[in-house]
Computed example of a mutant assay.
Amino acid sequence: MRLVLVLASLATPVTAWEFTPGLPCVLNHVEDGIAVELTHDPTQPLFTITLTRPTPWPEAEIFALSFQGGSDLTITTNRHELSDAGRSLTVTDRGFGNVLNGLILNDTATALIGGAAVPFSLTGADGPTRAFADCAVDPAV
């Protein structure tokens, strides 16, 4: 019976937001249909967000990340890249203030690209995102 419970827990996606300090600092979240990973290398400074799903993202010129539930905000960019046979979408930038605020101040986010809309929960993102933001302070400032 214990083996069944262990195997069942391995098949269930992690739903918590998790912060891992280091170089780079990492913030991640996995739920059914999408994995979200943010990284920050404070020595650069350089931030990334990678959204990975089981099927390829559509190719499109504009990617948007829309936050809902308290402080609604939509961020758009044309500087996204697809990798891993199109299943991973990554945006890299030198600042992520709007993204971090969106994660802290809202309940859900939706990745939007080429007609695809993939929502994910921000429940529990507040504390780990604040820790990630604190880790992201450039020591040279």
Rank of each mutant, 00 (worst) to 15 (best):
F96M: 10
Q44S: 14
P42V: 11
D134W: 01
T108C: 09
N101T: 13
V99Y: 09
P58E: 03
T92V: 12
L46T: 07
P45E: 12
D126V: 07
T110L: 10
V6H: 04
L38Y: 13
L65T: 04
D32M: 07
N98C: 04
T15N: 09
Q44H: 12
L3M: 06
L65F: 05
T55Y: 02
V99F: 06
V4F: 14
S66E: 15
T92H: 01
S121R: 13
A11M: 10
L5Y: 03
P56K: 02
T108L: 12
V141I: 13
A125D: 06
E81T: 10
F19C: 05
V36R: 02
N101L: 10
T20Y: 10
L51M: 09
I75M: 09
E61R: 10
A35K: 10
A117E: 15
D32C: 01
E37I: 10
G22Q: 08
N101S: 15
F47I: 01
R94W: 04
A64T: 03
P119I: 11
P45K: 09
D41P: 02
T77K: 03
G97N: 03
P45D: 08
H80I: 01
A35Q: 11
E59K: 14
T92D: 02
G86N: 04
N28M: 04
T76P: 00
P21L: 05
A85S: 10
A125L: 08
L112F: 00
P128G: 06
P42R: 14
L100R: 02
A133R: 11
L23I: 04
I113H: 05
D134R: 09
V14C: 11
N101H: 11
G33R: 07
P139C: 08
L73R: 10
L73W: 05
D41G: 06
R53F: 07
G33Y: 11
T110Y: 04
T20M: 10
T108Y: 13
A131S: 14
P139M: 11
G95Y: 02
V14H: 12
V99T: 05
L105A: 15
L112T: 09
W57C: 04
L103T: 03
G97L: 00
F67V: 05
G70N: 08
R53H: 03
F120W: 10
